[in-house]
Nucleic acid binder design. Sequence first.
DNA 1: GCCTATCCTTGGATCGTTCCAGGCAGCGCA
DNA 2: TGCGCTGCCTGGAACGATCCAAGGATAGGC
Lengths: 345, 345
Amino acid sequence: MSPSRRLTGPQPTLATVAQRAGVSRQTVSNALNNPELLRPDTLVRVQAVIDELGYTPNRAARQLRTRSSHLIGLRFEPAQEGTSNALMDRFVHTLVETTARTGHHILLFSGDPTDPLDGYDDLLRATAVDAFVITDTYAGTPQADLLRRVGAPFVTFGRPWDDPSARHPWVDVSGATGARLATEHLLAVGHQRVAWLGWEETSRIGEDRRSGWADAMAAAGVATDGLGVRISDNVDAARMAAHELLADAGVTGFACASDTIGIGVLHALHERGLRPGADVGVVGFDDSQGAQVTWPGLTSVRQPLEQVAVEIVDLLHTILSLKAVQEPARMLEPSLVVRRSTLRD
Amino acid sequence: MSPSRRLTGPQPTLATVAQRAGVSRQTVSNALNNPELLRPDTLVRVQAVIDELGYTPNRAARQLRTRSSHLIGLRFEPAQEGTSNALMDRFVHTLVETTARTGHHILLFSGDPTDPLDGYDDLLRATAVDAFVITDTYAGTPQADLLRRVGAPFVTFGRPWDDPSARHPWVDVSGATGARLATEHLLAVGHQRVAWLGWEETSRIGEDRRSGWADAMAAAGVATDGLGVRISDNVDAARMAAHELLADAGVTGFACASDTIGIGVLHALHERGLRPGADVGVVGFDDSQGAQVTWPGLTSVRQPLEQVAVEIVDLLHTILSLKAVQEPARMLEPSLVVRRSTLRD
DNA sequence: GCCTATCCTTGGATCGTTCCAGGCAGCGCA
DNA sequence: TGCGCTGCCTGGAACGATCCAAGGATAGGC
């Protein structure tokens, strides 16, 4: 039947359907939630009426009775360290699609940027969401502490940096592996002096990634003195740092903590008349839009954000169904997307 | 009091608060929704108990009674013509913040990408949302038609291209103005032969933007024969088209329908040894991350997405409060962000 | 034919809020 | 004193779903 017919007039309720099908409300409810309890012919009859009237259970009533809103809260931040906007888009989209399969939806809320706890509280007290997905864990996880204290279900995207022994469920991507892949790739195409251009020491994500570079260099038996540089995450800082490393340290390979930094290095190469790829290898991090479109293409570490979302939803479902969580912490591995900034031909 | 105290134990209800304050449930309800009906001293007493217990109304119960969920549905697509992901991020964030001021939240849902109607229907029948924001209007507005037919409130980001006489509420940004600003800027810095590099003729957004270029050229009395080129939206197509225009048509200025195309032009300039800005001017569209970080910086047309979101929420509130909408269609103007790709020094 | 066990179905109560109709002071005025 | 009016507050009913305890039909065994 046409949507217009289904949606015309007052919404049908359980009682409407029950009356029309000649059964009780509970039987209709069972047809929806526990169809195996009904005799096959009854089920068919009720289903027919449901389809005919275009009946869909009222979410508010169901939520009131079952104390479950089938909504998952996500605090939506404008931009975050280590995960640029476009990344969140890939992540959120998969989150929406995956949760939809079980009838859940994503509820976006905002909060005072200076207070990582803001917003959670209100939604919980109003019983507006069943669970949370937390993404801003780089600066500690006070939200996780709060939610665990009050017994609210949640999963974080990002490990508990402050307290590695924290036992809450999380999914994360190994930055160390990413930087190791980048460094090994640069070494493999023939660069010996591979620099690390990363963030300040206060960044846990930055230090994690940097350790992957250091490990790969050590494994290859290459010295790193003076090659690990810490700057802030912007194009100009990277450009200037790259100029120094190119002029004074004989660097021919750059492993970078972000695509922004990688692009800054490319700028420096332009300015010195060096050819990306052929003369100097550059690898970024995050495989952002910038890495894809910038000239001549920036090799970058790609996080499996779609898989992160799937794993998070999987954990949430396990928690919400009150089952014990087997493996509450899952570390995923990134991969390398090779572009012309590391091709020597 | 601390959040942990507020959230411990069973949630307080209206009845809890009423009993503790020595008033009836309705009085507590009024304290929240119609405080002017209460005697000042009663109001203070009730408020004190509400604060003490950390009471927040149960959303499900309120929603059931008032038939209003205070949720606004947004179909979240992975990527869209004319509005890249990072743009949607700016837009969605402002949407979340602005709706939060009136206690509304954004509910994300997904749908079959091949069916623009998928998803709306279910949420409406379940009375899960109060209204919708529609963003994918570039291919016609069947969703708007559906929603209007069933009387559901909504506002679209994007004008009704198919039917300019459609009277539903919308907010949009003038692409023609954007392209006109870009073209006038190129003419002003001394370029005469300014090409348009845009999308296929089937794109309404593309044709709208192109008309701004054509108008500006006409106003300046410059011929446009052979200068308006239609390609698909990717770096390589733009690069090749730019090579042709540079070699055969003596073009020194490029107004582009997107940043992706603009960056493709920059690639062609690199390959020909031409200096962006000094030799050839290039303007992109959308002011994406790529335009900001690419070398040497791409001048681009910036859409006021934050303002779009604010206007949309304003229209929604007007509609939801059942007031007549004064001006249901609002066209906003973009601005130009000048970077080195159009600086001649 | 009767009884029991199983399976399916039923009606009332309930979740927490807001709507509605009515009640009770207290005041002004005749 | 009595009447009407206003202002403030109360308790019952309703929103539409699910939970619960119990009722009725059906089949099988004796």
